[in-house]
Design a binder for these strands. Structure first.
Lengths: 242, 242
DNA sequence: CGGCTCATTGATGTAGCTCAAGCCTGGTGG
DNA sequence: CCACCAGGCTTGAGCTACATCAATGAGCCG
C-alpha cells in the first residue's frame, strides 16, 4: 500500500471509491489524488450508452464506480459476442493504442470517474505503481477471457448458463466465502439477449436453461431478472468445472 | 528504444534474438543484457514437453526463441480447450502469482531462453521499460483472446477453420503485407487434435472442413500439415470477418 | 387501451457430434 | 528390402443438442 499520506488530504469523493482501494487510484498518494480529482468528471450514464468507439473513451479513460459495462465484438452480418464484463472498480479504456475493434456499452446504469488521456500518461510516468496496477488488471482480464474461452468452446448450454450465474454470484460480493452455503440473491445485470451474446448461444436456449435450472431447484427466479441461489455448491457442480 | 549502448557489449546470443527486438529484452541496455545473459539457460525441448504447472516455470520464466507453445485448460472429465498460442519472441511465464490453472506445452520443438523469477523481479524494479513491455504483451494477448472468443462463440465450423488458417498465415511473416495476394506456404504447428481443441470442435469436423476448403481451392494440402494458400483474400473472406 | 420490449414455450430443422471403419506415413525389426 | 505396426488423418452413417421459426404471455409506458 502506498497511500501512506494523511487521510484528510484525500478528496471527499475518492474516500469511498473502490478504485482507491483495489483499482488504479490505489497507487496514488493523497496529493496525487487531489491533483487528479481536479481533472476528473464524475457522471452517471443510463443503460445502453455507448462508451467507446469514435465517441467517448478514445481520448478519455475512466474508473467504473458502479454498474456493469459490457465489451463486445460484432461481425459484419450482425452476429455479436460479448468478450468481457467490467465491474467497479475496474479501469475502462486502453493504454497505448486501441486497434482491435471493440465496443464498450453500459449494461446497467453506470457511474464513471473519467479523466483525459494526458492525465493517465502523466500518472504512468510519475507514479510507478500505476503501471503495475494496470498490468495486474490486464492479467486478471486475460485470465477471465481465457476462462471464458473454455466455457465457450467446450461447455454444454446448461453448463454455460450455470457458469454465467456462478460468475455473477461470485462477483456480487468478492469478500464472501463461497464455501459457506448461505443463499445468495442478486439481480442479473444483463438481459437474456446479452447473456446469449455472452455465452455464444440464442435467447431461446438461454431461456430454456434458466427454466431447467429453476425446475431443478438450483435457482429461484422472480421477474426473470431477480435470482436466488439457495445452494451455491449445487450451482457450481452444474458448471462442469471442479 | 533504450538500447543506446555500444553494440559490442551485447552478448552474442542476444544479437540475433527476436526477444531483443520486439520482446521483453528490448527494454534492456547492453550492460543489462550482459548481466542477464549470465543467468539464462538456453535450451531446446521437443514437441509435447510440459512447460508449466507444478513442474517447470513456476519459479522460472522464459523468452520463446523459436517454435510454438500452446496454453490450455482442461475440465475434470478431460474436455480441453487451447486458450492461447505463443510464438517467438513472446514471453512465457506469469508475473506476480499464477492462480488460474493453465498448462503450457510445446506444440512443436521449442527453443527457450529461461531465467529465474528473481531476475525478472529485479529487471522490473530496475528497468522501467520492462514492465511496460510486459503490459504491452499482455494487452496483445488479451486482444487475441477476445478475438478468439468471437470465433469460438459465434462462428461456424468452416469459418473457425478459415480463421485459424488465416491467423497462422498472418503470423508466419508479420512483416508481410497481406494485401499483396502472393501464395503463402507454411507448416501447421498443430495436429488436427490440437486444432480441434483450439477451435472448440471435434477432430472429425476439423478434418471435414480442411477437405472442404481444399476442394474449393482455397487451400492446397500436402501430407496434411503442409499448407499453401494461393489467394489469402479468399481465405480471409471465409473467416466471416471483414 | 394499444403498442412497446423482454421473456417463455412449442414445433421443426440442421450443423456438428458420435461411433465406426479404413487409409496413409513414417519408424522398427526381421 | 519388405512386413508390420502405431499414430495421425480422412470418410461415412446416423444421432442429438442446439438453432430457427413462430406464437403467446407479462410487465411498462404514452
Amino acid at each position: 500500500m502506498s497511500d501512506t499520506s494523511n487521510d484528510t488530504d484525500i478528496p471527499e469523493l475518492c474516500r469511498s471509491c473502490e478504485a482507491r482501494h483495489n483499482g488504479i487510484c490505489g497507487a496514488l498518494s493523497g496529493k496525487e489524488l487531489k491533483y487528479l480529482s481536479q481533472h476528473t468528471t464524475k457522471k452517471t450514464v443510463p443503460a445502453g450508452t455507448e462508451l467507446v468507439g469514435e465517441t467517448e473513451a478514445a481520448e478519455s479513460f475512466a474508473n467504473i464506480m458502479g454498474g456493469v459495462v459490457k465489451l463486445s465484438k460484432m461481425m459484419p452480418d450482425g452476429r455479436q459476442q460479448i468478450v468481457g464484463l467490467q465491474f467497479a472498480p475496474d479501469f475502462l479504456g486502453r493504454p497505448f493504442q486501441e486497434t482491435s475493434s471493440i465496443t464498450a456499452e453500459a449494461a446497467t446504469a453506470v457511474k464513471l470517474c473519467a479523466f483525459p488521456r494526458s492525465k493517465l500518461d502523466a500518472m504512468m510516468k510519475e507514479t510507478p505503481g500505476v503501471e503495475q496496477r494496470l498490468l495486474r488488471q490486464t492479467l486478471k482480464e486475460l485470465d477471465e477471457a481465457r476462462q471464458w474461452m473454455l466455457t465457450l468452446g467446450r461447455k454444454t448450454a446448461s453448463e454455460k448458463v450455470a457458469s454465467f450465474l456462478y460468475m455473477i454470484a461470485a462477483q456480487i460480493d468478492p469478500e464472501r466465502d463461497l464455501e459457506d452455503n448461505l443463499p445468495i440473491t442478486f439481480d442479473l445485470p444483463l438481459t437474456r439477449a446479452d447473456i446469449a451474446d455472452f455465452l455464444g448461444m440464442t435467447i431461446e436456449t438461454v431461456s430454456r436453461q434458466f427454466t431447467k435450472l429453476r425446475k431443478e431447484g438450483i435457482i429461484e427466479l422472480e421477474q426473470s431478472r431477480h435470482v436466488t441461489v439457495p445452494d451455491i455448491q449445487r450451482l457450481r457442480d452444474e458448471t462442469g468445472e471442479f
